[in-house]
Design a protein around this nucleic acid. Structure first.
Lengths: 219, 219
DNA sequence: TAAATCAAGATTGTATGCACTTATGAAAAA
DNA sequence: TTTTTCATAAGTGCATACAATCTTGATTTA
């Protein structure tokens, strides 16, 4: 049960059901999930170790909070690590892995053209995550893969996708497809360069929108 | 108490008192530290989240194990992240921070010349860690700093220092001092390049010794 | 009015007992 | 001899009770 509590809390945090900065009260969670406090406490400790919540001695745990600076740090880290991983993937990815990546990229393309940006936010996020995760896995460095995951698999990043416009989606699709090409040729430098563009372009787009938040319209 | 159990376990793991792969039995630890199983369980969960132990459902936890491949991955990751951090530190470190770094570098130099490699293994390790941590902190990216710490603050790395010979120590001292110089001038590219040399040289030294382990003599 | 005090309630921390799962080693079967 | 079976022991998972700590708001004091 500790396992399911752990997953429920993680889902709750990434869906912002438990808001950033919110105090997690053990009893409430326990009653909500129909278990005792013990597994809840253990799950919270684990999430504390992974950085999802802050553990405050004698005062429980609060959901980790994010600021503008966090966005910058995350993209800075991604701009460093992901290009390197892409480069390694160009050297080590198997044809089967590359095929899967291509399938994912094409799926995202179809999704977008068939339904438009607004309708696919969640599925787009998942597919995009799968694409990047697969590249990280193909690079063959478990540690960097996990570090990257710890850095970017946070609620904050899901949120940034909601700010993506049509132009961002189209650019992203193009870059994914080009990256697949680069991996297929095994050109390390090319793969690295595309991934760097990909991250930095996304960064700029997100930062610009965060600094000049537009009302609701988004074409 | 959970806090002190957590620290005791972490210390126990990094000192290899709990060997890699060892099964952590809750009752033994609880009795050893004079507490009940509850805080032990919570501490173990936290260490699981941080990667110090593996959590096996219904079968407790075992201390994470390391292989040769792990050494390679760790140095690969360090060779990517630390030069970048050093470069950022060249741009952002305050004079006071640089002075502290210089003091640390000189301390390591004195230590080595006064007592020799064998006598200072532990203190050398600590000072070296402090040096690198301070640079990571000066770079101003909390996430990369923590990721790096998660990657390299493992028992395995302490062990690698035991294999350092006189030549390695002298090279290391020289590089630290040169890095301080680079930081003082604010030359990003220089700082980056030195740090890359520093990591790659250490990597080569460690890998070579791991592959051709010599008896005991070490000049 | 503002600051300090303090007591009741809320919340977290720890110990303990029992249920359940996994590991073990001896006895039985092949 | 080797494999299978199975009972016992060991260990983990969870619930509950109580202790310790923190939060609160009302009351007192300056």
């Amino acid at each position: 049960m500790q396992q399911s509590v752990y997953e429920a809390l993680k889902k709750g945090i990434s869906s912002a059901r438990y808001a950033p900065g919110a105090h997690l009260r053990e009893i409430h969670i326990a009653e909500e999930l129909g278990v005792s406090r013990t597994p809840v406490r253990e799950a919270i400790r684990r999430l504390g170790g992974e950085g999802w919540v802050e553990l405050l001695p004698n005062r429980g745990a609060r959901v980790t909070q994010w600021s503008m600076r966090d966005i910058e740090e995350i993209f800075e880290a991604r701009a460093l690590i992901e290009p390197w991983l892409a480069g390694q993937a160009a050297l080590r990815a198997t044809p089967a892995q590359i095929d899967e990546l291509e399938a994912l990229a094409l799926k995202m393309q179809d999704m977008f053209h068939a339904e438009g940006a607004a309708a696919i936010v969640d599925r787009w996020f998942e597919a995009n995550k799968a694409f990047h995760d697969q590249i990280a896995a193909a690079a063959g460095n478990r540690r960097l893969e996990q570090s990257l995951a710890a850095i970017k698999d946070v609620p904050l990043i899901r949120w940034t996708f909601a700010t993506f416009g049509d132009g961002d989606h189209m650019r992203s699709i193009r870059e994914h497809l080009e990256l697949v090409q680069a991996l297929r040729t095994g050109e390390r430098a090319w793969a690295e360069a595309i991934m760097r563009c990909h991250i930095l372009a996304a960064r700029t787009s997100v930062v610009r929108r965060a600094e000049h938040p537009e009302p609701e319209t988004e074409t």
